[in-house]
Design a protein around this nucleic acid. Structure first.
Lengths: 137, 137
DNA sequence: CCGAATCCACCACGATACTG
DNA sequence: CAGTATCGTGGTGGATTCGG
């Protein structure tokens, strides 16, 4: 399903696919990106990629998220069919969240992005500082 | 970079890395995700992955984006060292945007996510409709 | 322990108009 | 063509409280 990626080596710019190819695509995937590309969704997916978790486990793992945003984020992911919610009517109550097959199919792309982010953290930090000090003139 | 150096815990048999491993990571990558995971950044990266573009080319390609948000998005990506901005002092003026080496390194993860999104568009749509009709009771 | 609900500040974002 | 400026608004997201 994944199209062969453009070879980087020795390629000229003209060998890149025309914009139009992506252009139509953009129309379609923009809403998806706008949805999963919020502040928390991908982090939650990233955590759930390690296995099912309870609500407060998630809250602890995704440090900094508020209870409300975690609820809303999970609700959104559930709506999109990426996460399933299982309630155990015990006392105390217990709710497990885990990736659905669809959510599971998203694991690899998200993990890759996460890996990219953590590998290039320092570079980005430096770029920011350089930019900020440069425009402070 | 992931599963290799993860120490084996107790007797549990799991291919998945423990949460704790991701947990510390999350702290660090949350800001990055919050940054690139806004409404437009990844789409712009996706377009620029096909080669350098001028401002209005981008505006047309990323359908639906306002002039203001494109400017802000590009400025943010530039600040993060992902995109470079080249001004040609001609008349009419011309400004080219293209991926930096750092931005280039992000191409593959973003393209993968884009591919994932476009492949599962229909599934997500169906999941949403199912969810919405189910909670409309 | 899990999560819904309310209140509220802020800023993300879009629309529009204006400049070099 | 490539922005900047300004303003208005809806939504995001935090703090807190309540319920099951």
């Amino acid at each position: 399903m994944l199209p062969e990626h453009i070879p980087v080596t020795g390629g000229t710019v003209s060998e890149l696919p025309p914009v139009e190819h992506r252009q139509g695509e953009c129309q379609a995937i923009a809403p998806i990106f706008a949805r999963i590309g919020d502040k928390w969704s991908m982090l939650v997916i990233l955590i759930l990629a390690t296995g099912p978790r309870r609500f407060n486990e998630l809250k602890r793992a995704v440090s900094g998220i508020s209870q409300r945003m975690l609820t809303l984020t999970l609700r959104g992911l559930e709506r999109d069919g990426l996460v399933s919610r299982t309630v155990f009517p015990t006392i105390p109550p217990r709710v497990d969240y885990e990736l659905t097959p669809l959510g599971h199919s998203m694991r690899e792309p998200v993990i890759q992005l996460g890996d990219w982010a953590s590998s290039h953290l320092a570079e980005i930090k430096r770029a920011r500082e350089a930019f900020d000090s440069r425009d402070a003139e």
